[in-house]
Design a protein around this nucleic acid. Sequence first.
RNA 1: GCCGGAGUGGCGGAAUCGGUAGACGCGCCGGACUCAAAAUCCGGUUCCCUCCGGGGAGUGUGGGUUCGAGUCCCACCUCCGGCACCA
Length: 814
Amino acid sequence: MSDTSVRKEAKPKAYKPSELEARWQARWAETDLYKTDEDPDKRKHYALTMLPYPSGDLHVGHWYAMTPSDTRARYMRMRGYRVFFPIGFDAFGLPAENAAIQRGIHPHDWTYANIENMRGQLRQMGTMFDFDAEVVSCDPEYYKWNQWFFVKFFEKGLAYRKEAPVDWCPRDNTTLAREQVVGPDRVCERCGTPVIKKNLPQWLFRITDYVEELLDFSNLDWPERVETLQKNWIGRSEGAEIKFVIENFGDIEVFTTRPDTLFGATFFVMSSEHPAVAEITTDEQRPEVEAYVERASRMSEIDRTDVTREKSGAFTGAYATNPANGASIPVYIADYVLMGYGTGAIMAVPGQDERDWEFAEKYDLPIIRTVKPPEDFDGKAYVGEGLAMNSGFLDGLEVEEAKERMTRHLEAEGKGRATVTYRIRDWLISRQRYWGTPIPIIHCPDCGPVAVPEEDLPVLLPDEAEFMPTGESPLKLDPEFRNTTCPKCGGPAERDTDTMDTFMDSSWYQYRYLSPHYDDAPFDPERGKKWLPVDQYTGGVEHAVMHLLYTRFFTKVMRDLGLVDFDEPMERLFNQGIILGPDGNRMSKSRGNVVNPQDYVDKYGSDVLRSYLMFIGPWNEGGPWDGGGIEGVARWLRRTTTLVSGEPTSAEADPSELDRRTNRLIKKLTGDIEAFRFNTSIAALMEQTNFLLAIKGKVGEKEWDAALHNFALVLAPFAPHHAEEIWNELGEEKSVHLQSWPEWDEAAIFEETITLIVQVNGKVRDRIEAPADIEEEAAKELALASENVRAQMDGKKIRKAIYVPGRLVNLVVS
RNA sequence: GCCGGAGUGGCGGAAUCGGUAGACGCGCCGGACUCAAAAUCCGGUUCCCUCCGGGGAGUGUGGGUUCGAGUCCCACCUCCGGCACCA
């Protein structure tokens, strides 16, 4: 017992990551270490991670999104850039209001309490976020500029009000943008409730004015996946609008991408919602048509859009004239023709269209092939390439040429014209909810909708609000808010009681970060010149057709308003994956597979959690959480703290490798971070740690010291607290995070000897140490001298010998 | 149905240019330390055969190109994601 005290003293000091991290975080805060560097002589780098919704606590998904992003921002800073890396809160939205309805807490209080809580958690994360730049979108100081933008859009004709059938979520009690309605069942993106159509006057933004520009990705370094999603969403298709004369009525236009098949149009189909249906229907057919329209309108969206359902329709009794050949063709209505696309009417060409074929078969309508299918074709409608047939002046032409000829012909005859149709609709902005930015419009019985004058902004969201269990908008029920006077004529008028889609907030937040308290404009133009646009954006791919499309649109409008002088908000984008629960499913409370990051921060510290999340696999892939796997990372980081003062391990390693390995590590990490390959970075850092501990005490002091300095430097972006601790133990006073990223010496990486692979007929038979610059002849001699090779040769002749310098010899024998 | 992405040990994954498949880590096995355990450290760990020299098979399946294929080409299977009657 008497010697225990002696042994205790000899032990290295206890490793307590939470103590270590708290100590450094306090020190960093004291020294303003992460205050944004404004040095004008440095190149700028604006790094941005998607801002979180203040739901209450940071979850592991936030860690997965933010900490690798932080690693890269730290790396850029060490590379000599001045780096701006802000964070904020996307603080408007329904959960706050639902909390109000369910628990009687005001959305404001709920939101700000959550923000307060999450601020603390964000700081504990140990990132280099500049908290001075923080933006909270539900603050009047912020949403005033939402309103300002709305007014600008309104003045430019980019915001307009329209009464039309819109998507309504009966559970969230609000309209939705088309982008927020998802899946074949057309459900609300937030809550999964099937949406219904409602006729309401709504504000829309004319994003369709910018479609052509939004299709241009040539100056963007964005994932192809996002590009494809946006292109598909915009859904550009080239074709023609063709006028059909309807007997006893007039013209109805159709849109088609296949004008070349016009000679094969044997019937005409309109959407049951087409406004001309009632007028063209003959008395005889009216009962049948009305019954069909009635049935179609009552059918749920789910049934209507079920592709597997048999086609159905009704004959209107009317006839149209095919403008190509003068044939009289019957006019049908059918629900497979959508009112929301093209003109809501089509020419049906069963010979070249599968849906039309199906319809023709059911209603026994004629089918004419106008494109010659290949000899072996035995299908029904033929949609492929081929020569035109049964098509008069088009016969014998390829599809592309026939399209063009027909379009020119129709244009000359005044019966049609080339046109482009898009799938994308204008962005519906109005929401019938309380917790959002009030739409700054006053409805005057005499002047119509009038914008609130700039000097009267912001239109404040009233604090007092009654939250109905039905979810009905409290603003509607608030006469004090609602009743006002018209800014134009001074007469009594009413405010718009809708609020804006919260995607409005996130469409321009990256600009507000620059000067969150600036009072004269959405952002300080001087700050803009210094920092814009965003250089590197990171976030989830789920925002591809909403946020990421809206913010591109916004930037283009801002450019046209003279606010910015570039076209795209974020030059480079990276999509991280999703971190799943241990069971491989998406984390959710109902599944009970939610991983709480705080548990791991408490146990292992922030460095371990962030390093583990980077180590788990490629960042863009995400993956299931493995609670056991994190142990390995925890062990590794603990070992790094023994580098300076701890004991060496007894593993075998060659100390003369030190310089080469250090240089190789720097090179590897540089390439990895540039390409977001954090998982292999961590692996390389682990390898180096194992190596360093094995050779500890076996190399010169100077060499050892240099190696540890370099190790701390390259560790810094990944495990900022541990790196700082090592750096400090090495006797350095100035933070490791203010140092430059080390350079590597390519010459030091060069190896003098290589392992020459010797193959016989492509199979590895031996591995021989050889000089790196070994000549072909010498390499072959070495190969032939090998016992293993000779055993394989056994009386056979060498036909050929392949030599790959510095790598292998392959002897081809038979 | 269409458009993407992906299939590699027991598990997460590595192999960046067609040239040693399985880096790094988890788990497991064995050893050291310990009265013992935990922690820690060391070694081993794709599978099958083996006379312990080595041999055979192997990156979803089947073909192909090549001296050589996880990597390139063709056909297919499975999983994940997106879109879905868009004329």
